[in-house]
């Protein structure tokens, strides 16, 4: 663990974590979530940094009684990612013809230890599918917290997860068969 100035780790009077504590504890979660959401590690690195910058600016609005720091950071990350995706969508619309012809660079795998088949299968899923997998499988959020973050009901969240995992398995089988 990296050394950080001790005062940054001082707990607030209310018992809520300080920003430094929250950043250290949840950096990996936020990063993993963004990797799955964007499907691009390089973009996810940038968005993670942007998320924590935004979180630092908005830290005074964080209320530990309304949810954990991890959930709050994931909400900030989601908002940051959606802004990025909207910008990308606009850019693609503007450069429609060029984007269609633009050869896609071979992106790095989503995770170092991920098998090529699983990596390919994950990339073939939609961002919505990858997002629910990230929240429920990687971050191990319970379905109600994940649902609140996604703005859907817990039942819809469970359904979405099952369908996403089902699709992922099918894609995996296809990839292995190929």
């Amino acid at each position: 663990m990296h050394a950080v100035t001790s005062s940054i780790f001082e707990r607030g009077r209310t018992g809520a974590p300080t920003f430094a504590e929250a950043a250290e504890a949840h950096l990996a979660d936020v990063h993993a979530y963004l990797v799955y959401l964007t499907g691009d590690r390089a973009v996810a690195e940038e968005l993670t940094a942007a998320t924590f910058e935004r979180a630092l600016r908005s830290w005074r609005r964080f209320d530990p009684r309304r949810g954990s720091a991890r959930t709050w950071l994931c909400q900030v990350a989601r908002s940051t990612a959606l802004d990025h995706l909207r910008g990308e969508a606009r850019r693609r619309r503007r450069e429609d013809v060029y984007a269609a012809l633009e050869p896609r660079e071979h992106a790095a795998p989503l995770a170092d230890d991920l098998s090529p088949a699983l990596d390919a299968a994950l990339r073939s899923l939609s961002a919505a599918d990858r997002e629910v997998i990230a929240l429920r499988v990687l971050l191990e959020l319970d379905s109600s917290t994940a649902a609140r973050l996604l703005g859907i009901s817990p039942t819809a969240c469970s359904t979405r997860l099952n369908r996403a995992l089902q699709r992922l398995e099918e894609k995996m089988r296809d990839a292995v068969a190929a």
């Binding site: 990996a28 993993a32 590690r41 690195e45 989503l110 995770a111 170092d112 699983l118």
Partner: peptide, 9 residues
Amino acid sequence: MLRAARPQP
């Protein structure tokens, strides 16, 4: 498999 290959920053 997914948890074992979790992306790391």
